[in-house]
Design a protein around this nucleic acid. Structure first.
Length: 886
RNA sequence: GGAAGAUUAGCUCAGCUGGUUUAGAGCACCUGCCUUACAAGCAGGGGGUCGACGGUUCGAAUCCGCCAUCUUCCACCA
């Protein structure tokens, strides 16, 4: 096959991905090998691939492919998340665009639309992952709302309910009075908003419900809620208000009597130090109310209007009521003053309506035991976090975990399996039939049509926390007596999880809880937290900013391998990623480099009778060691999840060591204007190394490596680099590397002189070196530096330029090209530097406290520095002397 | 306001238990090369008082304190 001069990714990628799929290379079944398992962080089912997904899934794929090549039975389970809030709001928006309001639809009609939407968009993101090269076991693709997984969620709910850990409670939700729905905290936008601070007089009651002439002053931004006040609260340490202890005050206008209570929550130096407590209409007040057993009086209805409990201004909108009540308070003499005030106010992301904190009945899951278990999992190290700093964050949250509100006022999701009897009592069962049976125990005559299932669905995380279990065996969660099926027994616990730190609590912590509860052990051994992908100037990638490129466009332009490299080059664990297209270009350049190195190797002609030249033998020996050395480093980097370091090590091995040094060293010289031949020993080594390099980089660049690996020799159908064994580090003599490095430095010295003196690389120079230099690498210097090497005792008065390779003196003979003054100036500069350096080292050695305290090895090293420096100075001085005499 | 983390070359980052670091890498930059694998290339080069100030130590980018700036998470203050 002819190879084009440039690598064409587009042609290659689809071909090999189809080949991999055709042979089911990504598919895993339990076997006798060690499993390596990753479950994908399931993207939203209607989502579109963005740069965050690219980063995350590239990392996942690198880990999976690396494990596969290390002989593990690698299984990467893909799937999607039903994402109730995001998906439902997309469906609502789509219906709205068609002129359909969700309110006009029944639950069944709406869900029909939602499923249609899911069928239409559900596969997109998984197909996009294929373009990236993701080696997911597609036969195992799961969806969090598919029947089996939904059943698992329902069973889990019933399980916890019967265990007594799920209860119905009241919670303050963010109510959107326009959309008539609760919205999540994420959907509330806090904006500083100008308003007023109303200072109101509350008169002290005489005990009979009549005002005295004494009063206290509270400051509020919401005077329309005073009718719902349950108490006035002051700080117990606030001496100004001690006279109020045990007193009761009267709510203005309606003269309802409320107590004065004390609580640390109140800031003494904010407002007047007196807080009106309105449990029904403020989150904090609600909590104070709980502590002090205060009455909860809800005076605002779902539309944001005052209801009859308010007694006055009934039916008025909350903002109209505010204006009116201010006037009424003023007329009644209760308004002391009004201040301008700016405070953060929550607005609904969807309707821009001001959010009304509203109490509502919600379902909760107790967190105390689960959180304790999950904290232990991480603190004991059974699950490791990378980077470790997230353990702190995790601990803080787990120690302060509040009960988990698991109900959502939506339709898209698993419907809560609570069935209400007409009298308001309820039963919790996995099916309507079971619920009817249970209901009959309470009320023998009850019929199915009398039962009404809870309208709410469960939080999406209440399904995704089962993911590492339910993708293998959906029967398991909620059935403690169930024996794990073959898959679950084999694949669980999974190995690594790659995800963003933003969902450490929402998802990671809860998966650990579910894992401990249902499996009795951690769901994964390591959690690798990626950073957030930002643009060059540090802004989050977002649709509204338009600063997020379409990954598919990038793949089309540069190739998937280049995109993968580009993302990994700038990703150290836990740090945000500053995305820059230049890095993808770098990846594309690397692809091209690999491609062309193969063109060179493939173009070699082999002379079966040729003997291996000394320089080639040396290069082979060196690269062998270098390869082992790098493989060991790469293994270490992978172990520590330093993926970008692993990549950089391979990158340099391929580009600098293999292409720039090894190939140049073994490249046959020209014979009669044509490239000469390579001997068979060197040729075989060269191909072996090339293959080793392909294997090393394959996890990161799956496509180009498969293409070239397949091209290297005739492969059978069904063979793939994916399952080739990863290169293994072998022991080597460290001197091999050290000596070759000396040769490289000598060559660099010669090249530097060429550059300086403008001498063409083609012109062969004469290099003199003093004896003692490792002889075996001299042929390398001769070839790579295009020099002939002579050893000499003295350089005498030769014309030329000297330089040092560590402690070895070198000298390039040049005739008529030396500017003596320039050389002298340069040498003197070097000499001055060395003398200063020597003085520093000697000062250190002369310091008794240093020699007394420092370890022997450190002192020894300083002595060596001293000796090296001395010999350099000696050499520089003799060169100077020679130059000055010439 | 609370918590965690960061600050090293123009950019992105390594630098693990203080001493083989006389602070490194990749990219970018500058100079010279179309040398028959690759100009998406080759060869060479410049560039940092390790955020500021104190402290511990024979010795600090590394440990401690304080300040500044930034990021994230939590709470968003009647």
């Amino acid at each position: 096959m002819e190879l084009a001069a440039k690598y064409n990714a587009a042609e290659v990628e689809d071909k090999w991905y189809a080949y991999w799929l055709e042979h089911k290379f990504f598919h895993s079944e339990p076997n006798e090998k060690e499993p390596y398992t990753i479950v994908i962080p399931p993207p939203n089912v209607t989502g579109i691939l963005h740069m965050g997904h690219v980063l995350n899934n590239t990392l996942n794929d690198v880990l999976i492919r690396n494990a596969r090549m290390h002989g593990k039975n690698a299984c990467w389970v893909p799937g999607t998340d039903h994402a109730s809030i995001a998906t439902e709001s997309k469906v609502v928006a789509k219906l709205k665009a068609q002129g359909i309001s969700k309110d006009d639809l029944t639950r069944e009609e709406f869900l029909k639309h939602a499923w249609e939407w899911k069928e239409e968009h559900g596969g997109i993101i998984l197909n996009q992952l294929r373009k990236l090269g993701a080696s997911c076991d597609w036969d195992r693709t799961r969806f969090t709302m598919e029947p089996a997984l939904s059943e698992a969620v329902i069973n889990t709910f019933v399980y916890f309910y019967k265990k007594g850990w799920i209860y119905k409670g009241v919670r303050m939700v963010n109510w959107d009075p326009e959309a008539l729905t609760a919205v999540s905290d994420d959907e509330v936008i806090h904006k500083d908003t100008k308003s007023h601070f109303y200072h109101l007089r509350y008169y002290i009651s005489d005990g009979q419900g009549n005002p005295t002439d004494k009063y206290l002053v509270i400051a509020t931004t919401r005077p329309e809620t005073i009718m719902a006040d349950a108490a006035i609260c002051v700080n117990p340490n606030d001496e100004r208000h001690h006279w109020l202890r045990g007193k009761k005050v009267l709510i203005p206008l309606i003269n309802r009597e409320i107590p004065v209570i004390e609580d640390d929550y109140v800031e003494m130096d904010f407002g007047t130090g007196c807080l009106k407590v309105t449990p029904a209409h403020d989150v904090h007040d609600y909590e104070i109310g709980l502590r002090h057993n205060l009455e909860v009086l809800d005076i605002i209805d779902e539309h944001g209007k005052l209801n009859e409990k308010a007694r006055i201004l009934v039916g008025e909108d909350r903002f109209v009521a505010r204006k009116k009540i201010v006037k009424m308070l003023e007329e009644a003499g209760n308004l002391e003053k009004v201040e301008e005030y700016t405070s953060p106010v929550g607005y609904s992301e969807r309707t821009n309506a001001v959010i009304e904190p509203r109490l509502s009945a919600q379902w909760f899951l107790k967190m105390d035991t689960l959180a304790k278990m999950a904290l232990d999992t991480v603190e004991s190290g059974r699950t490791k976090f990378i980077p470790e700093k997230y353990v702190n964050t995790y601990r803080h949250w787990m120690e302060n975990a509040r009960d988990w509100c698991i109900s959502r006022q939506l339709w898209w999701g698993q419907r809560i399996p609570a069935y209400y009897l007409p009298d308001g009592r309820y039963v919790v069962e996995a099916s309507a039939e079971a619920a009817l049976e249970a209901a009959k125990a309470i009320c023998p005559d009850i019929k199915m049509e009398d039962l009404h299932q809870d309208e709410d669905v469960l939080d999406t995380w209440f399904s995704s926390w089962l993911w590492p279990i339910s993708v293998f065996d959906p029967e398991m969660p909620g059935h403690p007596d169930h024996q794990p099926n073959k898959d679950l027994a084999y694949y669980y616990p999974t190995s690594d999880l790659v995800t963003g730190p933003d969902i450490i609590f929402f998802w990671v912590a809860r998966m650990i809880m579910a894992g401990e509860e249902f499996m009795g052990r951690e769901p994964f051994s390591n959690v690798y937290f990626t950073g957030i992908v930002r643009d060059k100037i540090g802004r989050k990638m977002s649709k509204t900013l338009g600063n997020s490129p379409d990954p598919l466009d990038l793949i089309k332009t540069y190739g998937a391998d280049a995109v993968r490299i580009g993302m990994l080059l700038c990703s150290s664990a836990g740090n945000d990623i500053f995305y820059d297209e230049a890095q993808i270009k770098q990846g594309a350049a690397f692809c091209n480099k690999i491609w062309n190195s193969y063109r060179l190797v493939k173009g070699f002609s082999v002379d079966e009778n040729a003997k291996q030249p000394a320089v080639a033998a040396e290069a082979v020996k060196w690269f062998d060691a270098k390869l082992s050395d790098t493989v060991a480093q790469v293994e270490d980097h992978y172990r520590k999840f330093r993926i970008s370091d692993a990549l950089m090590a391979i990158y340099k091995l391929f580009w600098d060591d293999y292409c720039a040094w090894y190939l140049e060293a073994i490249k046959p010289a020209f014979v009669d204007g044509k490239p000469g031949s390579v001997d068979p020993v060197t040729y075989k080594a060269t191909l072996d190394y090339f293959e080793a390099l392909l294997k090393l980089i394959h996890p990161v660049m799956p496509f180009i490596t498969e293409e070239l690996w397949q091209n290297m020799e005739e492969r059978k159908d069904g063979e793939t680099i994916m399952y080739a064994a990863a290169p293994v580090a072998r022991p080597f003599d460290p001197d091999t590397l050290v000596h070759f490095e000396l040769a490289q430095e000598a060559v660099n010295g010669v090249r530097g002189i060429r550059n300086q003196k403008n001498i063409a690389p083609k012109e062969t120079l004469e290099l003199k070196m003093k004896e003692g230099f490792p002889a075996e690498v001299v042929p390398v210097i001769e070839k790579m530096g295009n020099v002939t090497v002579d050893s000499a005792h003295e350089f005498g008065d030769m014309q030329g330029v000297g330089f040092m390779v560590r402690t070895y003196e070198m000298f390039v003979a040049l005739n008529g090209l030396v500017n003596v003054e320039e050389e002298i100036a340069k040498l003197e500069k070097d000499l001055a530097y060395q003398q200063k350096f020597l003085a520093g080292v000697r000062a250190k050695l002369a310091n008794e406290r240093f020699t007394a305290h420092a370890p022997a090895a450190v002192i020894e090293n300083e002595r060596k520095k001293e000796a090296d420096s001395l010999s350099k100075i000696e050499s520089l001085e003799s060169q100077l002397k020679a130059l000055k005499n010439s």
